[in-house]
Design a protein around this nucleic acid. Structure first.
Lengths: 209, 209
DNA sequence: CCTACCGATCGGTAGG
DNA sequence: CCTACCGATCGGTAGG
């Protein structure tokens, strides 16, 4: 918990986080050096340690902030208005928009899954997996409600949530491959992809309400 | 192109590749050190340079071999027998089986997308993207045929192939999160996920053949 | 296949 | 916020 001194040092802290997220995303955990991050800010390496006590702490806070920002930006599908179909479509749009606008956040999460080694890597991986399971549970609750409303198929909510995660991960992978493209080409087809997905999980012809 | 001397040195080369793939997968490109790879083989670092002239060449060959093995193991969906639905299901099964049995191959590909820096990183990324586009084109041809046969919906083959890639990437992401689990839990639901996916892209009620 | 070694860079600290 | 520095490790080479 670093203490805040004045407005300027908060601002430097923000710039530090932005630079670090960029370098971690581009080069991986080990490949991003503290010297490299400092250079992006026009500073020398030791100055960074006024803001974060170690590289590990810096990475961990970036990851936590990314997950929190993501979660906030994509909103809770359960709390939207309209049909469950509309709610999920809105949730998808928010999530994709966040990922498009914050490519580093997505890259940090991918990194954290596997490519951070040792005891620290295990902590990071466990943290991420926990968030993922929480999200999965939330979506299971959403699909259970959608099922009660007769909007989705009669598979278990667990399977429906798993199908949603599969679709969402797939879309985000397209985003990952589109780094560098100003206008990712798959975005032009997002709505068609969504419609095909929804058709797969929508309730069958007869309504049972 | 290293020259083969005798049976023993080929075997050491194979062990080197296996060890290197494992360490790259676990720690990323920079995080995996030549010393670390050598230690896994009970050798000293300089000995590795009898087999590969540099770390970059080693990584590149591992990536190419992984892609080739993957491509061979998952087969061409177009060349299977049976309905297009059956062909695609078989293709999915082979791909998932390969990924489950060769987690390092998958990890190397994820690595290569983003976390290899500099000029070498650009080469690697371009190589991978090319393979992906080739695969996408192949699947577009598959879906064009399936459409002629009246098995799939009337979206363009491009969109259908994109939907397939989305589904497949999503499934492989589940696999990525399941590293360490002896029996990835999502595999128990693979067939249900497949059915929901197929329902989304299958031809609508009336047949137009 | 090894020992010995190269210059460069790593995360982090001391001290101001 | 800096200079100066720590021991460790990096990819790679020389020479045998």
């Amino acid at each position: 918990m670093p203490e805040l001194t004045d407005a300027e040092s908060v601002s430097t802290r923000d710039r530090l986080r932005a630079a670090a997220a960029e370098l971690f995303a581009e080069r991986g955990y080990v490949g991003a050096s503290m010297t490299g991050i400092a250079k992006m800010l026009g500073l020398r390496k030791p100055s960074l340690y006024n803001y974060y006590p170690s590289k590990e702490e810096l990475f961990l806070e970036l990851l936590e902030r990314s997950l929190a920002a993501w979660s906030e930006a994509s909103g809770s599908a359960v709390e939207e208005t309209g049909s469950y179909q509309e709610r999920l479509r809105t949730h998808l749009g928010k999530t994709v928009d966040f990922a498009a606008g914050n490519p580093h956040a997505m890259a940090l999460c991918r990194l954290a899954v596997a490519q951070v080694a040792g005891e620290f890597g295990d902590r990071v991986q466990a943290h991420l997996l926990e968030e993922r399971v929480d999200y999965q549970r939330e979506m299971e609750a959403f699909f259970a409600q959608a099922q009660d409303a007769g909007e989705v198929a009669t598979e278990t909510p667990e399977v429906l949530a798993l199908a949603w995660l599969t679709f969402l991960d797939g879309v985000l992978t397209h985003q990952l491959f589109a780094v560098g493209e100003r206008r990712p080409y798959f975005l032009d087809h997002l709505d068609e992809l969504w419609r095909l997905f929804w058709r797969g999980i929508a309730a069958h012809g007869e309504s049972d309400v």
